[in-house]
């Protein structure tokens, strides 16, 4: 094997990084969607001012 013929120098930093990678903690910050009641008004306004669905042109 290649690695057997290659001198491998492992520093304390390498060992620390390895230990950190092996622990795999959970994500620090949650990205959960939050309830936003004030958004209801904006959604309703959007529905009211949105243009109507286009109709099929007649006479063609």
């Amino acid at each position: 094997m290649l690695a057997q013929h290659t001198p491998l120098l492992v520093t304390p930093t390498d060992a620390t990084a390895l230990g950190t990678a092996m622990v795999e903690p959970e994500a620090v910050l949650s990205d959960a969607p939050t309830y936003a009641p004030e958004a209801t008004g904006a959604l309703l306004l959007g529905l009211l001012i949105s243009p109507k669905e286009p109709k099929e042109p007649k006479g063609k």
């Binding site: 094997m1 690695a3 491998l8 390498d14 092996m22």
Partner: peptide, 15 residues
């Protein structure tokens, strides 16, 4: 490990 450019990193990945 054999094909890795960095054998040390390849061995670390196994660990």
């Amino acid at each position: 490990v054999e094909r890795a450019d960095d054998p040390k990193a390849a061995l670390a990945a196994i660990r």
